[in-house]
């Protein structure tokens, strides 16, 4: 079975001074899939996304997008190439309305987007609706609560019309019902043909939406494979949750 590779990292490494936040990670993301990226706090998940998307300079290693070497490219070029992401710590444009925020993605995103502001503002209406923020279109971003700021992150990334989307903990801080609807959104986005990498601590969501999971621990690959299989891997349980949480983990498993 030959699957088309959309993104590949080879020995990707990021050091902060003496700290190896990401160490020699080889990851392959296949076109059309939803891949989960998990790992304990500080494992290097966000940093990994940062070095792929050009937010931080990579220390060593290579990144290929659809076969093209994009290592060291500036973030805006990577964005225009068709990679979008959300930020774990949300980054709204506070002085702009929801609509204007999202329109920025439609103005500058994939392919440089080539839409005028007017076209972009019209174009994003259905995206705002899709993430369930139609009523908030004219609101300024600084008036939104955190769950909506997370959705705004998603809408901004979607407006860029990406081929590959990184979701960095978009479900953190949401309640069970909100998580359900967020999972539904992720699936729908994927159905549109967008490849997704989800970073989540919410195991139920990981099991519920991903087809494959990649585990990082201390910046290194710990395991990868089918969700259930990986989550039952004792090494993963040990590293990821610590013994204290093993019990809770199994409760979560049952619920899922």
């Amino acid at each position: 079975m030959e699957r088309e590779v959309i993104l590949e990292t080879k020995q990707a490494t990021k050091h902060f001074g003496g700290l190896a936040a990401v160490e020699k990670v080889d990851m392959t993301i296949y076109k059309g899939e939803i891949l989960g990226l998990i790992g304990p706090n500080g494992a290097g998940k966000t940093t990994f996304v940062n070095i792929i998307t050009g937010m931080l300079p990579i220390t060593s290693g290579k990144v290929y997008f659809k076969g093209q070497d994009i290592t060291g490219w500036p973030a805006f070029k990577i964005g225009r190439l068709g990679i979008a992401r959300t930020f774990q710590i949300v980054k709204p444009f506070r002085g702009m309305t929801v609509q204007e925020n999202v329109a920025v993605g439609a103005m500058f995103g994939h392919g440089g987007a080539k839409r005028s502001p007017r076209e972009a503002l019209e174009h994003v209406d259905h995206i705002i609706e899709f993430v369930g923020m139609a009523d908030l279109r004219e609101k300024h971003a600084d008036e939104l609560t955190l769950p909506y700021l997370k959705r705004l992150e998603l809408a901004k990334a979607l407006a860029m019309d990406p081929e590959l989307l990184f979701l960095d903990e978009v479900m953190a801080g949401l309640n069970t019902k909100e998580i359900e609807s967020a999972m539904e959104l992720v699936r729908k986005i994927n159905e549109k043909g967008i490849t997704i990498l989800v970073i989540e601590h919410v195991m139920k969501a990981i099991v519920g939406v991903t087809q494959r999971v990649f585990v990082l621990n201390f910046g290194q690959e710990l395991a990868q494979g089918a969700p259930q299989e990986v989550l039952n891997n004792p090494a993963v349980i040990q590293a990821y949750l610590g013994e204290k949480f093993v019990a809770r983990f199994f409760r979560q498993q049952k619920a899922a």
């Binding site: 937010m55 973030a75 979008a84 930020f87 709204p92 702009m96 329109a103 920025v104 500058f108 502001p117």
Partner: peptide, 21 residues
């Protein structure tokens, strides 16, 4: 687009950059 890019940079330069500006 220039005007939007300016305000986006003012509000969050990293986000602006990532969004293709």
């Amino acid at each position: 687009k220039m005007g939007y890019s300016w305000v986006a940079i003012r509000e969050d330069e990293d986000a602006a950059n990532m969004m293709g500006i």
